[in-house]
Every structure is written in structure tokens, then in C-alpha cells.
Amino acid sequence: MTTPSSWKPRLVALDVDGTMLDPATQSISAGVRRAVSDVVEAGVHVVVSTGRSMLGTLPVLDELGISDGDALCSNGAVRVEVSSREAVSVETFDPQPVYERLSPLLPGALYAAEQVGTASLVTELFDPEELHGPQRRCSVERLLEHPVPRLIVNWAGHSPERLRASMDGVVLPGCCYTVDHYQPWVTVVPDGVSKASALEKLRVELGVAAEDTLAVGDGDNDIQMLEWAHHGVAMGQGPSVVRSAADEVAGTVSEDGLVPVLRRWFPPRD
């Protein structure tokens, strides 16, 4: 979508990993932090919109200096009020039918069920850099006992390409899912839930016009968000399916590609 030169967004939705945070260094650069801070200081609604859990998102908000507004976690299934650091909206699904569908397709996979704001129940321990916050190892039966907002399926030891082939055409009852291009992960959330659906609810509540929205992301779970936004920007290292869903392709995360995107509308403040 072509935007006029005078246009400036009033709501900016930003993915975390691969957009603000470089997975290679597991850090957010000083340039990105300054650029995001200047957007916040301009009075614009900056909404961190991520597949991370609430536990994985709070440290990012702290690092960025975002102290109010809302953040969308778990691909939109969990909405966090930043000032209180509390989940104010949680959408869940029954993980039992999902496990029954996936376990024969992905033998040996590891499962993680989010317990909002406290921990993740896991069938086997994940790498701490992959799954943020405390992990509580438990039986499959225990993990499937209660509804959850997000279920992670890690087919460790297999390539993302093989995982995508195994998931081709798979329908999960009462859920929707994304398959990662970078690691052999499936992220499952309630049916109809996405970053885009959560952002649309928030946009309406905030009274922001649909044409005043900007979104930046790099992964499969960002596609609907990029299509939702008036102006969607894909990071340069994102897969072709993500880049093709965007209005613009920025530089890569390692090049701080987000910075010139934000600086176009929000120059450095004195």
C-alpha cells in the first residue's frame, strides 16, 4: 500500500525476535532502543506484538523502557497491561485433541504448555534461550489437564523443512497454528486468535483509525499482522512468504533494519 509523504502512524506494532532483537546475539541494539523510545515519546501507541509468552515479553518491555499501554503475547492469545504487568485478557483452548492429532505425526516431539505469568509445563526441558521463564517438567497427562493459551511443539532433531512437510494440510481442532521457518517449532493458539485479531480489538478500543497503523515483523506468525496494518514492513531476512505479505521490505535485523523504518516518521529527539 502506498502511503502519502505526510502520513504518520498512530499505532506501531512491533514483533520482537528477528525484528527488534537479533537472534544471533540475543540482544536489542542501542540504535533500536533509541528509535523505539523516540516513537513512544512522540505519544504514539507502541504495541509489542510477539509469539513470546508474557514471561518472555516483560524483560523486553523493560529494556525498551515501555512502561504503559498494552503488549500482545503468545501470538495475541495473552494481552498484558504494561503498567500493572498483569494479563488482562487470556484466550485458551483444550490441548488434549491437539496432542492426539500431532503425536503420531511428530513422534518424539517435546511439548510446552504456557501457564500465564508463572511458568511453562514441559514434557522435557527446553533450552532456556528458546523457552523463557521457569520450566516445570511433568507428564503428558498433567500438561494436558487444563486449557492453555499457547502450546509449543518442538520436533527436536528434525529440520524446519521436514516439520513443514509433516504439517502440510493438518487441521487442529479448535486451534490455529504457525510453523517456524527457523527452527522445528509449531506454535498453537486458540482458533481465530492472531496478532492481527488482537491488534484490531486494541485499535478499536484506542480509537485509532485503521489507516493510521504500522506493523513490522519477520516470521510466519507476523503475516496476518502485516496484512492487517495500513503499512506492513517485513524484515529483510524474513522468508519470501512473509516479505510478499508486506508493503515494504526493510533491512535485516542484524543491520538494524527497523531503525530507518521508524526514523522515516520519528526522527531523533533532542
Rank of each mutant, 00 (worst) to 15 (best):
M1E: 08
T2A: 04
T3L: 15
P4I: 14
S5M: 05
L11H: 07
D17Y: 09
M20T: 10
D22F: 03
Q26F: 03
Q26M: 11
S27L: 06
S27K: 05
A30C: 05
V32Q: 06
R33T: 08
A35F: 06
V36A: 11
V40P: 07
G43W: 10
V46D: 05
S49T: 10
S49W: 02
S49A: 08
M54Y: 00
M54H: 01
M54C: 01
G56C: 12
L58K: 03
L58R: 08
P59K: 13
L61C: 05
L61A: 09
L64Y: 15
S67I: 10
D68G: 13
C73Y: 07
C73S: 14
G76V: 06
V80I: 14
E81S: 14
S84Y: 00
S84K: 13
R85E: 03
E86G: 10
A87Y: 15
A87E: 12
V88F: 05
V88H: 07
E91L: 13
P95M: 04
Y99C: 00
R101P: 00
L102A: 11
L102S: 03
L102F: 08
G108N: 08
A109E: 12
A112Q: 03
A113C: 02
A113R: 11
E114I: 13
V116S: 00
S120C: 03
L121R: 13
L121T: 04
V122E: 02
T123G: 06
L125Y: 08
F126R: 06
H132K: 13
G133D: 03
G133S: 07
G133N: 07
P134M: 00
R136A: 12
R137H: 11
R137A: 13
R137Y: 02
C138P: 11
V140R: 00
V140M: 13
R142C: 00
R142W: 00
R142M: 05
P147G: 07
P149V: 06
P149T: 03
L151G: 06
N154V: 02
N154E: 09
W155I: 14
W155R: 12
A156Y: 08
A156G: 11
R162D: 12
A165I: 14
D168F: 13
P173N: 14
C175L: 04
D180A: 13
H181T: 07
Y182W: 09
W185A: 01
G192T: 07
S194Y: 09
K195N: 13
A196G: 08
S197L: 08
E200K: 15
R203D: 02
E205L: 10
L206F: 07
G207M: 01
E211Q: 12
A215F: 07
V216K: 04
G217W: 10
N221M: 08
Q224G: 09
M225H: 04
H230F: 02
H231W: 09
H231R: 10
V233Q: 11
A234V: 03
M235D: 00
G236F: 06
Q237F: 00
V241A: 15
A245N: 02
D247M: 04
E248N: 12
E248H: 15
A250G: 11
A250E: 14
V253G: 10
S254M: 08
L258V: 07
L258G: 04
L262S: 01
L262I: 11
R263G: 11
R264D: 01
D270I: 02
